[in-house]
Computed example of a mutant assay.
Amino acid sequence: MDALMLEGWTPILLIGIVVAFIIFFISRKISRKALFLISIVLSLICVGIVIYSREAVGGWEGIGLAFVTFSGFLGIWVGTISGMIIKK
C-alpha cells in the first residue's frame, strides 16, 4: 500500500535529488561566488515558474508543476549549501 502511495511522488522526489547532486558536483569545479550566483538565478527561475503555474496554468496541472518546481528549488539549495560546506 505504501509503495502505491509513493509511486506518484517518485518523479518529484527524483528531480530534487538529481538537481542536488548536479549542483553539488558543479560546486566542486567553480568558485563560491559563481555557485551562489547560479543558485540565485535558478531560484528566481523557479519562483517565476511557480507564479506562472498558479496564474496561467491553474488547476491540478498547475499544482503539479509547482510541486516539481519546489522540489527543484530545494535541490538547488541543498546542493549549494552542501557544496559550500564541503568546499571549506
Rank of each mutant, 00 (worst) to 15 (best):
T69P: 01
V50C: 09
A3T: 08
T69C: 01
I51A: 13
I12F: 11
G62D: 12
W9D: 13
G59R: 01
G64F: 03
L74K: 08
L13P: 05
L37E: 09
D2G: 12
F67Q: 03
A20E: 03
I12E: 10
I22W: 12
D2F: 14
S82G: 03
I86F: 02
F25G: 00
G59D: 02
K87W: 00
G79W: 07
I49T: 12
M84D: 04
V50W: 06
F24M: 06
S27I: 06
L6D: 14
V41N: 08
W60C: 00
G48E: 06
G83L: 09
V57E: 01
R32Q: 10
I81Y: 15
P11T: 15
I26S: 04
G64S: 02
L6I: 14
Y52Q: 08
V41E: 11
F36Y: 04
P11M: 12
G64E: 02
E7F: 07
V47Q: 12
G48D: 07
L44G: 13
S27P: 04
D2H: 09
C46N: 12
I38R: 15
G72I: 09
V47D: 06
G16D: 11
V41H: 07
S31G: 15
A34S: 15
T10H: 06
K29C: 00
R32S: 09
I26K: 08
W9H: 11
D2S: 12
R54M: 01
L13M: 14
L44Q: 05
F21Q: 13
L42R: 06
L35S: 08
F24T: 04
I86C: 00
G83Q: 07
I76L: 15
V68T: 07
M84Y: 06
F70T: 14
E61G: 10
G64A: 06
P11A: 15
L13Q: 07
Y52A: 11
A34Y: 14
I85D: 02
I22R: 14
I15C: 09
S31D: 06
T80G: 11
L4R: 09
V57Y: 02
L42K: 03
I22Q: 11
F24G: 04
K87Q: 00
L4P: 00
S39T: 15
R28M: 01
I30N: 04
I17W: 03
K33E: 11
R32H: 04
I30L: 03
V57R: 02
A56L: 02
S53C: 07
S27H: 05
G62E: 10
A56V: 05
D2E: 13
S82T: 13
R28I: 00
D2L: 15
W77P: 05
R32G: 10
A20Q: 05
L42Q: 08
F73V: 07
T10F: 14
I12C: 09
G58V: 00
G8D: 12
G72V: 09
G72C: 11
V78D: 10
I51P: 03
G8H: 11
I30R: 05
Y52C: 08
G75A: 14
F73T: 06
M84S: 08
I17Q: 01
S82N: 10
T80Y: 13
M84P: 02
I86V: 02
I30D: 04
F70I: 13
L35N: 10
F73A: 09
G8N: 13
I26E: 08
F70D: 09
L44K: 07
R28S: 02
I81N: 12
V78E: 09
I17S: 04
G59E: 01
I40K: 08
K87P: 00
K29Y: 00
W9Y: 12
A56N: 05
V68G: 03
I49A: 10
